[in-house]
Amino acid sequence: MKEQINSFLKKAQKELNECKSLKDLNELKVKFLGKQGELTSFLKAMKDVPKEEKPQMGQLINNARNTIEQRINDLQNIFEKQELLNKLQNEKIDITEPSKGIEKGELHPLYKVFDKLIDCCVEMGFKVITGPEVEYDYYNFEALNVPKDHPARDMQDTFFVNDNILLRSQTSSVQVRAMQNLKPPFKIVSPGRTYRADSDATHSPVFHQFEGLVVDENISMIDLKSMLTKLLSMLFGENTKIRFRPSYFPFTEPSVEVDATCPSCGGKGCNLCKGTGFMELLGAGMVNPKVLEMSGIDSKKYTGFAFGPGVDRLAMVVNKIPDLRMMFENDIKFLEQLK
Protein backbone atom coordinates (compact mmCIF):
# COMPACT_ATOMS: atom_id res chain seq x y z
CA MET A 1 0.00 0.00 0.00
CA LYS A 2 2.89 2.21 0.72
CA GLU A 3 4.11 1.78 -2.82
CA GLN A 4 0.60 2.39 -4.10
CA ILE A 5 0.40 5.64 -2.25
CA ASN A 6 3.82 6.73 -3.50
CA SER A 7 3.06 5.83 -7.07
CA PHE A 8 -0.32 7.57 -6.75
CA LEU A 9 1.47 10.66 -5.54
CA LYS A 10 3.92 10.56 -8.42
CA LYS A 11 1.14 10.08 -10.94
CA ALA A 12 -0.92 12.82 -9.40
CA GLN A 13 2.02 15.23 -9.47
CA LYS A 14 2.70 14.37 -13.07
CA GLU A 15 -0.91 14.95 -14.08
CA LEU A 16 -1.03 18.21 -12.15
CA ASN A 17 2.12 19.36 -13.88
CA GLU A 18 0.43 18.72 -17.19
CA CYS A 19 -2.75 20.49 -16.17
CA LYS A 20 -3.35 23.57 -18.31
CA SER A 21 -6.53 25.25 -17.10
CA LEU A 22 -8.67 25.94 -14.09
CA LYS A 23 -11.31 23.59 -15.49
CA ASP A 24 -8.83 20.68 -15.81
CA LEU A 25 -7.57 21.46 -12.36
CA ASN A 26 -11.05 21.22 -10.87
CA GLU A 27 -11.50 17.83 -12.56
CA LEU A 28 -8.20 16.62 -11.19
CA LYS A 29 -9.14 17.94 -7.76
CA VAL A 30 -12.29 15.80 -7.78
CA LYS A 31 -10.35 12.88 -9.18
CA PHE A 32 -7.65 12.97 -6.53
CA LEU A 33 -9.32 14.42 -3.49
CA GLY A 34 -13.09 14.04 -4.08
CA LYS A 35 -15.39 11.74 -2.13
CA GLN A 36 -15.04 9.11 -4.84
CA GLY A 37 -11.43 10.09 -5.41
CA GLU A 38 -8.34 8.04 -5.30
CA LEU A 39 -7.08 9.28 -1.98
CA THR A 40 -10.42 8.49 -0.38
CA SER A 41 -10.03 4.92 -1.63
CA PHE A 42 -6.77 4.70 0.30
CA LEU A 43 -8.52 5.89 3.40
CA LYS A 44 -11.22 3.33 2.87
CA ALA A 45 -8.48 0.68 2.58
CA MET A 46 -7.07 1.69 5.97
CA LYS A 47 -9.43 -0.66 7.72
CA ASP A 48 -7.40 -3.55 6.27
CA VAL A 49 -4.10 -2.18 7.45
CA PRO A 50 -2.59 -3.85 10.49
CA LYS A 51 -3.03 -1.76 13.59
CA GLU A 52 0.64 -1.11 14.21
CA GLU A 53 1.08 0.24 10.66
CA LYS A 54 -1.98 2.45 10.82
CA PRO A 55 -0.33 5.55 12.23
CA GLN A 56 2.48 5.37 9.69
CA MET A 57 0.07 4.73 6.85
CA GLY A 58 -2.25 7.44 8.02
CA GLN A 59 0.68 9.80 8.14
CA LEU A 60 1.64 8.82 4.61
CA ILE A 61 -1.85 9.43 3.24
CA ASN A 62 -2.11 12.76 5.02
CA ASN A 63 1.23 13.86 3.63
CA ALA A 64 0.14 12.86 0.14
CA ARG A 65 -3.12 14.80 0.60
CA ASN A 66 -1.27 17.85 1.85
CA THR A 67 1.20 17.73 -1.00
CA ILE A 68 -1.54 17.44 -3.60
CA GLU A 69 -3.72 20.05 -1.96
CA GLN A 70 -0.84 22.44 -1.77
CA ARG A 71 -0.02 21.87 -5.38
CA ILE A 72 -3.64 22.32 -6.43
CA ASN A 73 -3.91 25.55 -4.44
CA ASP A 74 -0.75 26.88 -6.02
CA LEU A 75 -1.95 25.98 -9.47
CA GLN A 76 -5.35 27.44 -8.73
CA ASN A 77 -3.72 30.76 -7.77
CA ILE A 78 -1.67 30.74 -10.92
CA PHE A 79 -4.61 29.88 -13.14
CA GLU A 80 -6.88 32.43 -11.50
CA LYS A 81 -4.31 35.13 -11.93
CA GLN A 82 -3.85 34.11 -15.50
CA GLU A 83 -7.57 34.10 -16.07
CA LEU A 84 -7.89 37.63 -14.53
CA LEU A 85 -5.09 38.82 -16.73
CA ASN A 86 -6.83 37.41 -19.78
CA LYS A 87 -10.05 39.03 -18.72
CA LEU A 88 -8.38 42.42 -18.22
CA GLN A 89 -6.66 42.02 -21.54
CA ASN A 90 -9.96 41.34 -23.27
CA GLU A 91 -11.64 44.32 -21.62
CA LYS A 92 -9.01 46.75 -22.86
CA ILE A 93 -10.57 49.83 -24.51
CA ASP A 94 -9.23 52.37 -27.03
CA ILE A 95 -8.43 55.29 -24.78
CA THR A 96 -8.10 57.59 -27.77
CA GLU A 97 -11.84 57.40 -28.38
CA PRO A 98 -13.44 60.84 -27.80
CA SER A 99 -14.30 61.99 -24.30
CA LYS A 100 -17.88 62.28 -23.13
CA GLY A 101 -19.72 65.16 -21.55
CA ILE A 102 -19.68 68.89 -22.26
CA GLU A 103 -16.51 70.27 -23.69
CA LYS A 104 -15.33 73.19 -21.57
CA GLY A 105 -15.10 76.68 -22.95
CA GLU A 106 -12.40 79.16 -22.07
CA LEU A 107 -11.81 82.67 -20.83
CA HIS A 108 -10.65 85.27 -23.31
CA PRO A 109 -6.84 85.73 -23.21
CA LEU A 110 -7.34 89.36 -22.31
CA TYR A 111 -9.31 88.57 -19.18
CA LYS A 112 -6.97 85.76 -18.20
CA VAL A 113 -4.21 88.35 -18.05
CA PHE A 114 -6.49 90.80 -16.26
CA ASP A 115 -7.31 88.20 -13.62
CA LYS A 116 -3.64 87.34 -13.11
CA LEU A 117 -2.71 91.01 -12.72
CA ILE A 118 -5.58 91.60 -10.32
CA ASP A 119 -4.74 88.58 -8.16
CA CYS A 120 -1.07 89.47 -8.00
CA CYS A 121 -1.86 93.05 -6.97
CA VAL A 122 -4.46 92.04 -4.39
CA GLU A 123 -1.83 89.78 -2.84
CA MET A 124 0.44 92.82 -2.62
CA GLY A 125 -2.22 94.78 -0.76
CA PHE A 126 -3.93 96.63 -3.59
CA LYS A 127 -7.61 97.44 -3.58
CA VAL A 128 -9.33 96.88 -6.92
CA ILE A 129 -11.66 99.67 -7.96
CA THR A 130 -13.48 100.49 -11.15
CA GLY A 131 -14.85 103.72 -12.51
CA PRO A 132 -17.01 105.11 -15.26
CA GLU A 133 -16.00 104.69 -18.89
CA VAL A 134 -18.04 107.70 -19.92
CA GLU A 135 -16.22 110.33 -17.95
CA TYR A 136 -15.93 114.03 -17.32
CA ASP A 137 -13.04 115.77 -19.06
CA TYR A 138 -11.94 116.85 -15.58
CA TYR A 139 -11.14 113.33 -14.37
CA ASN A 140 -9.60 112.13 -17.60
CA PHE A 141 -7.43 115.16 -18.25
CA GLU A 142 -7.63 118.30 -16.19
CA ALA A 143 -7.05 116.74 -12.77
CA LEU A 144 -4.15 114.84 -14.33
CA ASN A 145 -2.26 118.01 -15.16
CA VAL A 146 -3.60 118.19 -18.72
CA PRO A 147 -5.70 121.35 -18.99
CA LYS A 148 -7.85 122.00 -22.04
CA ASP A 149 -5.76 122.59 -25.18
CA HIS A 150 -2.60 121.28 -23.51
CA PRO A 151 -0.14 119.80 -26.03
CA ALA A 152 -0.17 116.50 -24.12
CA ARG A 153 -3.72 116.01 -25.35
CA ASP A 154 -2.16 115.22 -28.72
CA MET A 155 -0.60 112.09 -27.22
CA GLN A 156 -3.99 110.43 -27.57
CA ASP A 157 -6.98 110.96 -29.82
CA THR A 158 -9.96 111.13 -27.55
CA PHE A 159 -13.62 110.38 -28.32
CA PHE A 160 -15.83 113.18 -27.08
CA VAL A 161 -19.54 113.18 -26.35
CA ASN A 162 -19.53 116.93 -25.78
CA ASP A 163 -17.08 119.57 -24.52
CA ASN A 164 -17.32 118.25 -21.03
CA ILE A 165 -17.92 114.52 -21.34
CA LEU A 166 -15.74 111.99 -23.13
CA LEU A 167 -14.99 108.29 -23.35
CA ARG A 168 -12.06 107.86 -21.02
CA SER A 169 -8.80 107.55 -22.92
CA GLN A 170 -7.02 106.07 -19.92
CA THR A 171 -7.95 104.35 -16.68
CA SER A 172 -5.98 107.09 -14.93
CA SER A 173 -9.34 108.82 -14.51
CA VAL A 174 -10.06 106.30 -11.77
CA GLN A 175 -6.83 107.38 -10.05
CA VAL A 176 -8.19 110.86 -9.62
CA ARG A 177 -11.49 109.63 -8.22
CA ALA A 178 -9.60 107.36 -5.84
CA MET A 179 -7.23 110.10 -4.68
CA GLN A 180 -10.16 112.34 -3.91
CA ASN A 181 -11.98 109.64 -1.96
CA LEU A 182 -9.26 107.69 -0.18
CA LYS A 183 -6.91 108.76 2.57
CA PRO A 184 -3.28 107.85 2.06
CA PRO A 185 -1.58 105.50 2.45
CA PHE A 186 -3.38 103.42 -0.18
CA LYS A 187 -2.71 101.10 -3.07
CA ILE A 188 -5.23 100.76 -5.83
CA VAL A 189 -5.50 99.14 -9.22
CA SER A 190 -8.15 99.85 -11.75
CA PRO A 191 -8.75 97.53 -14.68
CA GLY A 192 -11.04 98.49 -17.50
CA ARG A 193 -11.99 99.47 -20.99
CA THR A 194 -10.56 102.60 -22.55
CA TYR A 195 -11.20 104.35 -25.83
CA ARG A 196 -9.16 106.22 -28.42
CA ALA A 197 -9.99 107.33 -31.91
CA ASP A 198 -7.39 105.07 -33.44
CA SER A 199 -7.84 101.98 -35.55
CA ASP A 200 -5.12 100.06 -37.36
CA ALA A 201 -3.08 96.88 -37.09
CA THR A 202 -1.69 97.87 -33.70
CA HIS A 203 -4.45 100.12 -32.34
CA SER A 204 -8.02 99.34 -31.48
CA PRO A 205 -10.57 102.09 -30.72
CA VAL A 206 -11.65 100.03 -27.70
CA PHE A 207 -8.78 98.70 -25.65
CA HIS A 208 -7.95 97.83 -22.07
CA GLN A 209 -5.76 99.25 -19.37
CA PHE A 210 -4.74 98.24 -15.90
CA GLU A 211 -3.87 101.31 -13.90
CA GLY A 212 -2.07 101.09 -10.60
CA LEU A 213 -1.45 103.80 -8.02
CA VAL A 214 0.35 103.76 -4.70
CA VAL A 215 0.42 106.79 -2.42
CA ASP A 216 2.43 106.50 0.75
CA GLU A 217 5.01 108.34 2.83
CA ASN A 218 8.19 106.65 1.68
CA ILE A 219 7.56 105.52 -1.85
CA SER A 220 10.27 105.91 -4.47
CA MET A 221 11.31 104.81 -7.95
CA ILE A 222 12.87 101.77 -6.30
CA ASP A 223 9.50 100.59 -5.00
CA LEU A 224 8.06 101.14 -8.44
CA LYS A 225 10.79 99.01 -9.93
CA SER A 226 10.52 96.18 -7.41
CA MET A 227 6.75 96.09 -7.64
CA LEU A 228 6.73 96.01 -11.44
CA THR A 229 9.43 93.35 -11.47
CA LYS A 230 7.19 91.15 -9.36
CA LEU A 231 4.12 91.85 -11.51
CA LEU A 232 5.86 91.19 -14.81
CA SER A 233 7.71 88.14 -13.46
CA MET A 234 4.35 86.70 -12.53
CA LEU A 235 3.27 87.09 -16.17
CA PHE A 236 6.46 86.26 -18.01
CA GLY A 237 8.48 84.06 -15.69
CA GLU A 238 10.69 84.28 -12.65
CA ASN A 239 13.83 85.53 -14.35
CA THR A 240 12.18 88.55 -15.94
CA LYS A 241 14.20 91.72 -15.52
CA ILE A 242 12.95 95.21 -16.18
CA ARG A 243 14.57 98.47 -17.11
CA PHE A 244 13.47 102.10 -17.17
CA ARG A 245 13.80 104.55 -20.04
CA PRO A 246 12.96 108.23 -19.66
CA SER A 247 9.60 109.32 -21.01
CA TYR A 248 6.92 111.90 -20.46
CA PHE A 249 3.41 111.68 -19.08
CA PRO A 250 1.77 114.80 -17.71
CA PHE A 251 0.67 113.12 -14.47
CA THR A 252 3.99 111.56 -13.52
CA GLU A 253 7.41 113.09 -12.97
CA PRO A 254 9.87 111.48 -13.44
CA SER A 255 8.11 109.42 -16.11
CA VAL A 256 9.50 106.20 -17.53
CA GLU A 257 8.85 103.62 -20.19
CA VAL A 258 9.23 100.18 -18.72
CA ASP A 259 10.85 97.42 -20.77
CA ALA A 260 10.98 93.80 -19.67
CA THR A 261 13.33 91.12 -20.89
CA CYS A 262 11.73 89.37 -23.84
CA PRO A 263 9.81 86.34 -22.52
CA SER A 264 10.67 84.45 -25.68
CA CYS A 265 14.47 84.69 -25.61
CA GLY A 266 15.04 85.86 -22.05
CA GLY A 267 17.00 88.88 -23.21
CA LYS A 268 19.33 87.33 -25.76
CA GLY A 269 17.51 88.89 -28.70
CA CYS A 270 15.11 87.16 -31.08
CA ASN A 271 12.54 87.88 -33.79
CA LEU A 272 9.82 88.67 -31.28
CA CYS A 273 11.80 91.47 -29.64
CA LYS A 274 13.46 92.49 -32.91
CA GLY A 275 16.83 91.51 -31.56
CA THR A 276 16.81 93.97 -28.67
CA GLY A 277 16.18 91.41 -25.93
CA PHE A 278 13.60 93.74 -24.43
CA MET A 279 9.92 94.45 -24.91
CA GLU A 280 8.37 97.85 -24.34
CA LEU A 281 5.42 97.10 -22.11
CA LEU A 282 4.11 100.05 -20.15
CA GLY A 283 4.47 103.59 -18.95
CA ALA A 284 4.96 104.49 -15.32
CA GLY A 285 6.40 107.11 -13.03
CA MET A 286 6.24 108.98 -9.78
CA VAL A 287 2.94 110.84 -9.42
CA ASN A 288 3.50 114.51 -10.23
CA PRO A 289 3.24 116.51 -6.98
CA LYS A 290 0.91 118.87 -8.84
CA VAL A 291 -1.50 116.00 -9.40
CA LEU A 292 -1.36 114.99 -5.74
CA GLU A 293 -2.04 118.56 -4.66
CA MET A 294 -4.94 118.92 -7.11
CA SER A 295 -6.55 115.92 -5.41
CA GLY A 296 -5.98 117.34 -1.95
CA ILE A 297 -2.99 115.19 -0.97
CA ASP A 298 -0.06 116.86 0.77
CA SER A 299 2.80 116.36 -1.68
CA LYS A 300 5.38 117.35 0.90
CA LYS A 301 4.36 114.40 3.05
CA TYR A 302 3.29 111.85 0.48
CA THR A 303 4.80 110.53 -2.71
CA GLY A 304 3.28 108.05 -5.06
CA PHE A 305 3.85 106.01 -8.13
CA ALA A 306 1.57 105.02 -10.96
CA PHE A 307 1.81 102.49 -13.73
CA GLY A 308 -0.48 101.66 -16.61
CA PRO A 309 0.10 98.72 -18.93
CA GLY A 310 -2.11 98.13 -21.94
CA VAL A 311 -3.54 94.73 -21.20
CA ASP A 312 -4.24 93.94 -24.84
CA ARG A 313 -0.52 94.21 -25.51
CA LEU A 314 0.37 92.05 -22.50
CA ALA A 315 -2.12 89.39 -23.60
CA MET A 316 -0.58 89.41 -27.06
CA VAL A 317 2.93 88.99 -25.71
CA VAL A 318 1.93 86.27 -23.22
CA ASN A 319 0.08 84.25 -25.85
CA LYS A 320 2.22 85.21 -28.85
CA ILE A 321 -0.86 86.50 -30.65
CA PRO A 322 0.31 87.77 -34.04
CA ASP A 323 -2.39 90.38 -34.73
CA LEU A 324 -4.28 92.63 -32.31
CA ARG A 325 -7.45 92.38 -34.36
CA MET A 326 -7.76 88.65 -33.68
CA MET A 327 -8.47 89.53 -30.07
CA PHE A 328 -11.63 91.42 -30.97
CA GLU A 329 -12.88 89.25 -33.81
CA ASN A 330 -13.59 86.39 -31.39
CA ASP A 331 -13.42 83.72 -34.06
CA ILE A 332 -14.07 80.49 -32.18
CA LYS A 333 -11.07 78.96 -33.95
CA PHE A 334 -8.92 81.64 -32.32
CA LEU A 335 -10.49 81.19 -28.88
CA GLU A 336 -10.16 77.40 -29.04
CA GLN A 337 -6.42 77.72 -29.48
CA LEU A 338 -6.14 79.32 -26.05
CA LYS A 339 -7.56 76.39 -24.08
Partner: peptide, 19 residues
Protein backbone atom coordinates in the same frame (compact mmCIF):
# COMPACT_ATOMS: atom_id res chain seq x y z
CA UNK B 1 17.99 101.04 -10.88
CA UNK B 2 19.14 97.87 -12.62
CA UNK B 3 21.11 96.83 -9.57
CA UNK B 4 18.25 97.15 -7.07
CA UNK B 5 16.45 93.92 -6.26
CA UNK B 6 14.33 94.92 -3.31
CA UNK B 7 11.27 93.11 -2.07
CA UNK B 8 8.17 94.53 -3.70
CA UNK B 9 6.80 97.55 -1.84
CA UNK B 10 9.31 97.09 0.95
CA UNK B 11 9.02 100.73 2.02
CA UNK B 12 5.26 100.90 1.80
CA UNK B 13 2.75 100.79 4.64
CA UNK B 14 1.01 97.43 4.89
CA UNK B 15 -2.45 97.59 3.35
CA UNK B 16 -5.07 94.88 2.94
CA UNK B 17 -5.79 93.85 -0.61
CA UNK B 18 -9.38 93.81 -1.72
CA UNK B 19 -11.17 92.56 -4.81
Amino acid sequence: YDKFNNLPLYNATVTVGEH
